[in-house]
Each structure stands twice: as C-alpha cells, then as structure tokens.
Design a protein around this nucleic acid. Structure first.
Length: 529
RNA sequence: GCCCUCGUAGUUCAAUGGAUAGAACGAGGGACUUCUAAUCCCUAGAUGUAGGUUCGAUUCCUACCGAGGGUACCA
C-alpha cells in the first residue's frame, strides 16, 4: 500500500532524492503523507509549497484512479487518500491470500540463510528475566524473518566447558562442604538443592570440578529447555554445545589457523592476540593465554566459523547488556571469518522493582526472580506481550507486583478480546457468502478497518529490516482499537443481507490478520474469553 | 578516568528529522433491552538543564546533571 506511493514518487523525482512516506497522526492529513517536496525544494532552491503543487500534479497525471484525493498542506506536505475502490480491492486481496497474507515468498536463489542466536545463558542455574527478554525477542524476530522470506535457524549456544563450568563445579563442592566458599562462587538455594540430591555424584567427582560442573550443567540445561520450550513456548532448532560441537571438532585450531593466515594474529608475553583494533576495537584481544588455554572469545570465534561453514549468509546474535564490551571483538572475528551480515543486538537491562524500590538481581548470589516465576505469576501471553511492547534498547523497570495486578487488564487481552468478538460474529452467522459486494462498505469505521488490516505486511517488512519488534505489539493495539471501534459503531447481525455479507467478509479479513499477527508474536488466539 | 546505552504525563512505555509529542495504567465524569461492557465516549496531565545545526529537533552535535552497563591472558 505504502509501496505504491513510494513507487509513484520514485517515478517522478530524481534518483538521489531521499524522502519518507509515513502515516500522519491526524486523519485529516490523509492515509499517507510524504515530505518529498521539502527535499526537492532544497535541491532546486525553491519554495516547498510550490514544489509540492508541481509534484501533486505529476502524481495525479501518472495515477489518476487509485486516489480519492491528493492534498497539499503547509509547510509543504503532500497527503494521499486512497479511493474507495482501491481500498475494497485491498480487502479482496486479504481474503484471497488467507493466512498467507503478509508472508513474503522469494524465489529459491534469493533465499538467505540466517542464524538467530539468543538466550545462550550458561546452564548454571535458572533463567533470569533478562534471559526471558532476549528469549522472547529472539523467538519473535525469528518468526518475523521467516515471514519475510528468510530461512532461519534458532540457536541456543551452550557454554558447557571452561572456567565458568569449573567455578560452577567448585560451587557445588562448596555447597556440599568439600571446599571453602569463595566470592565468585555461585550461591543460592538451587545449588544447595542439587547438591543434596546428588551426593553420590559429588563424592565421585570431588577432585574433578569440571566434570562435576558439566554433570550438573546437563541437569540445569534440561530445566532450562523445559522452561523455555514448554512454558514460554520459545522455539529452538538447535542447542549447540561448546564442548562437543566446537572444541571436540577442532574448530578452535581451525579458526586460529584462519586468523593466522589472514595475518591478524601475533604473539606477545607468551599469549596469542587477535588484531581486533584494525576493526575499531579499543585494544587487541587474547585468543590463547600464556598457559596455552583458549579464551572464551576464541571458542566463540570457532562457533562463528562453524556457522559460516554450515552455509549461513548471516547471523544475528542477541546478547545481554553485560556483553557491551564484547560487540567489537566478535564483529571483528566475523569479518575475518567472512560471515557477512553479522549483527549483534544488545538487550538493555531490566531493573527489578518491588514496591517502588529497586531490588538487586544477581544469579551468582541467587537473589532474583526467575523467568519461570514470572510466567507462573502472569501467564505466558502476558509475559511475552509485556516484554515485546518495549524497545530492547530501553532500560526497563519491571515491577512484578504491578505486572500481576495489570495482568488482568493487559493490552494482550485487549487484542485477544477483539479477536474473540470477531470470531463470535462469524460463528453466529454460520455460512458466509463468498460473493459479497464489498463496495457497500463505506462508513468511516469500515474503511478505517480495511486500511489498518492492509498495513500488516508493511509492519512486518519494516520490522524485518530494523528489528524493532515493539512495532508489532503497537500495531496489535492499534488494530484492536480500530476493531473495537468498528464493533461498537457498526452492526452485522440483523442488518439487511448485502450488508451482512459485506461486513462478514470484512470480519473474516480481520480474523485472518489477527491470526497471522498472533502467530508471529507467539501469543494464543482464543475462541472464547 | 575512558567508552556505550538510557533520561518523555503521577507510573510503565511510544513517536525511520516532520504537522496539535501518542497509548496504557492510575485520577475524574458518562454509555449496556443490542454480534460478549475484558468494550466505547469525554476531561486533566510530559520532552533532565544550557547552547548549537535548519524550513522544522524528543530525534542530530557540544557541555552539564542523573540512572544502568562495559573497561581482565574471566565468562
């Protein structure tokens, strides 16, 4: 829809002119609006209003039929309003496409393989709220990319070896009384509980904290999988093991060799370094310590090489805020490896607030509300919507009491209720005539609903480009508002037959879009509430 | 110290450099004999501070103030 206007403008202005087409705040400014006249006027050093007038005439000459009107408003905007006929055709398209509406189909040669890595929390305890934020984000981003024609793999990278796991093993030994507690050890009830249940395993491995840590990590990974897949309905295609898939498949040596061949490696103070400063990092980074141990960074580079070798064109890595300092170096590695389109998304921190006061969260100290707790408290749909409503770049204050209180009056129910209302009408009507005359849909509410339903593919497309997933939840709220408004003002059942038929088609289209939207967001589409 | 992110109604959040800064919750007032009132309608209420860039700034630049994070041969 918007694309039609963009194409029209592109046909009439010089190529280098940059412009925007957006939806105006006020309906008096039409369905879409462009600022192209400002840009043209600057180029030609003329008056924006006069330029707008010229452009308007050029547009009308090229496309005399699809617009009801094109208007100029100060200080130089050009506002487009579609014709009734055009809107009715759009409605027809939704009905024709059915639940494929919004799905982009690309020819085989154009399909790109993208891996989305997210959560990837160490299996050393339950998931935090921040993990949940990244989890929902990665899940829905993957959906959006799939709808936009990408081939997507959803990956959870499991750090199941190295210092972190050794510390974890030691923490368990400390909890069982074999070692003295230390500052960096993991604490918390979940460690103690595991230690109590697994006394025999601890006894057997008391001199091998790595093995013990790995053994416990297996158990915690199972719990994580359960929480993520069953409770949160976050889907993964692959759980990649750092130990089995990277270390034991010699990817460490392989990536080291590749870095060396590219001339990016040097030795200093007995350690091996990668020249990440060539890619804008503050300092070069260690790949292999002077004790000949590979760093976590080197293992990660090996992981990126694995992804590249498995045929991916791109990778999107969703990380928590404690990884800020990590972005430059991993992007450096991606560049050397040749993994094009490598992107790192940092989700901002969540501050847990309780009764208006900040509550510190720490996994190591065992003081936190887990992701699972939250889902148990407010439900999966609410938790999901709640996180997705907010840009990942924003620091988020999370008050669990408030979340619980508001879960009964939550925007997700607002959207689901709109869907229920639509379904209910269709159910009451029974069979729907396919030969409805859509041209009689001409009230403000009819047209506004058609307009907003038609926007769905644009919302998806924009989101697949800039990853601003909260656009989807905003759209869900906007669309629901428009539907509720329609429902309040226009009736279906009891009207004369041709109105019933036309409105039933419109509602059918609404049901389609709501179903599509809920599927992308991963929330349920209830028949009754 | 240096680097990054963030600062918007009472609260939680929106606004690819655009028009009168939008919602939701909370507050106040109204609307059900109707396809589900988990809804709709009305009212009050905000860009941290000081400059700069331009037709136009919440958005870009500089300084300051405040919050969080990073700054290891840890992960």
């Amino acid at each position: 829809m918007r694309q039609i206007i963009i194409d029209l403008i592109k046909k009439t202005v010089p190529k280098k002119i940059d412009f925007d087409v957006l939806i105006p705040d006020d309906e008096k400014y039409g369905h879409y609006s462009t600022n192209v006249a400002f840009r043209l006027a600057k180029e030609k050093k003329s008056d924006p209003m006069a330029t707008a007038e010229e452009s308007k005439n050029a547009f009308l000459k090229k496309e005399p039929f699809i617009f009801e009107k094109i208007e100029i408003s100060k200080p130089g905007f050009i506002n487009f309003s579609f014709s009734l006929d055009f809107l009715h055709k759009r409605l027809q398209e939704i009905l024709k496409a059915g639940n494929d509406f919004g799905k982009k189909k690309l020819s085989k040669s154009k399909i790109e393989k993208v891996q989305v890595e997210f959560i990837s929390a160490n299996p050393t305890g339950p998931l935090t709220l921040a993990n949940g934020r990244g989890g929902f984000f990665g899940d829905v981003l993957s959906n959006v990319l799939q709808w936009s024609g990408y081939e997507v793999e959803r990956e959870y990278y499991v750090n199941d070896t190295g210092n972190q796991i050794i510390t974890f093993g030691k923490s368990i030994l400390a909890a069982a009384g074999f070692l003295k507690e230390e500052e960096e050890f993991y604490k918390g009830d979940y460690i103690k509980k595991w230690a109590e249940k697994n006394k025999k395993i601890i006894e057997e491995n008391k001199n091998n904290p790595l093995k013990l840590g790995q053994r416990a990590a297996e158990d915690f990974l199972k719990l994580i999988k359960k929480a993520v897949q069953d409770k949160a309905r976050i889907r993964f295609d692959r759980f990649t093991s750092e130990d089995k898939d990277i270390h034991k498949k010699d990817l460490i040596q392989k990536v080291l060799k590749l870095f060396d061949k590219e001339g990016k490696v040097y030795k200093k103070d007995g350690a091996m370094w990668l020249k990440t400063t060539e890619f804008g990092d503050d300092k070069d980074r260690v790949l292999m310590t002077s004790d000949h141990e590979p760093t976590y960074f080197l293992a990660d580079a090996g992981h990126y090489l694995e992804t590249k070798e498995r045929g991916f064109d791109g990778k999107i890595n969703v990380l928590g805020p404690d990884h800020y300092g990590y972005v430059k170096r991993i992007q450096s590695a991606a560049k050397i490896i040749g993994l094009e389109k490598s992107e790192v998304i940092i989700t901002q921190a969540i501050r847990l607030v309780r009764d208006g006061k900040e509550a510190k969260m720490s996994k190591r100290k065992g003081e936190f509300v887990t992701f699972e707790d939250l889902i148990d408290e407010v439900g999966e749909d609410v938790a999901r919507f709640f996180f997705l409503m907010i840009s990942v770049g924003t620091h988020m204050d999370f008050d669990i009491g408030l979340a619980k209180e508001r879960s009964r009056k939550n925007p997700v129910f607002y959207a689901q209720y709109a869907y229920v209302r639509a379904k209910n009408i269709l159910e009451k009507l029974g069979k729907i005539s396919k030969k409805a005359d859509l041209s009689i849909l001409n009230t403000k509410e009819d047209l506004n609903l058609i307009l907003n339903l038609s926007r769905f593919p644009e919302v998806l497309e924009d989101t697949s480009k800039d990853y601003q997933l909260h656009r989807l939840t905003r759209y869900a709220q906007d669309l629901s508002r428009v539907f509720h408004d329609f429902y309040e003002k226009e009736r279906v059942i009891g009207e004369e037959e041709k109105i019933v038929n036309a409105r039933a088609s419109l509602i059918k289209a609404a049901v389609i879009v709501f179903q599509d939207l809920f599927e992308v967001l991963g929330i349920s589409a209830p028949d009754k509430m």
